[in-house]
């Protein structure tokens, strides 16, 4: 019974791979969500630097986005993981914040590496979105006596998000896939690695890679629905 066998394959516990896939699915989401949140922060910093009057900040930001976007992602992730994380560890030890022999949790190092790459693309999306907010919208807020923070939170941010959502949505979808890259950094048991293990152990390549694909597709379909809802919400009031 073929069908019966497949159901058994996806069973919970030692005999089946259902629990492994479930936790792999969660791991992929966890990596993606963490990296994405961090990428948004990197992106905002880089955008602010790019749009600042300070030439040094502009130079730093342009170097960052140019280099990161030029290199293959997997190479960038390897470089960041093995050098930047190492340098940061040494710096933290030297600064006395942590004890000697401190090492980043590999999970966070991998998330950092992914976010570092995605942050460069995010910076471009956010920069274009920021520039799409008409100056008059900011002037009327300035003229009424709002503070810079109020202007950013209440006028610039809501309006730029409208322009940023399509690009940010794309980046989210690509980060859920790129999360599989961290498999090269070690065993994180995310979705792709789980599929690989299951396929290798059972020789059921088509089935298990198929399951893996369906689960990635599931993430994308749910994401698209959420992104569309956000777009509709942010586009209220625009003809």
């Amino acid at each position: 019974m073929v069908i019966h066998t497949y159901i058994e394959y996806m069973g919970w516990g030692a005999g089946g791979w259902g629990d492994e896939f479930f936790f792999g699915f969660l791991m992929t989401l966890k990596i993606s969500l963490s990296a994405y949140a961090l990428a948004v922060i990197f992106g905002f910093f880089a955008t602010t630097a790019k749009l600042s009057k300070n030439i040094f900040l502009r130079f730093m930001a342009v170097s960052y986005t140019t280099v990161v976007r030029a290199l293959p992602e997997i190479l960038m992730v390897l470089i960041v993981y093995f050098t930047v994380a190492g340098l940061a560890e040494t710096a933290l030890v030297k600064a006395g914040f942590v004890d000697k022999g401190f090492q980043f949790n590999p999970f966070w190092a991998a998330v950092f590496a992914l976010a570092f790459v995605a942050g460069a693309f995010m910076a471009e999306v956010l920069r274009a979105a920021r520039l799409a907010v008409p100056e008059g919208q900011i002037e009327s807020a300035t003229a009424i006596g709002m503070s810079s923070l109020q202007i950013f939170m209440r006028v610039i941010l809501p309006q730029m998000m409208r322009h940023a959502i399509p690009g940010m949505g794309n980046l989210w979808l690509s980060i859920t896939k790129d999360s599989a890259i961290v498999a090269v950094l070690g065993a994180f048991s995310e979705l792709l690695y789980t599929g690989y293990r299951a396929a290798a152990a059972t020789k059921e390549y088509v089935f298990f890679y198929g399951v893996t694909a369906v689960l990635f597709l599931l993430i994308t379909l749910i994401s698209i629905a959420v992104i569309q809802w956000m777009e509709r919400h942010l586009n209220r009031g625009y003809a």
Binding site: G136, E139, A143, P158, L234, G237
Partner: peptide
């Protein structure tokens, strides 16, 4: 201040 182009917040 009242602007030539109104500058009402579009959102």
């Amino acid at each position: 201040m009242v602007f030539q182009n109104f500058n009402l917040w579009a959102h």
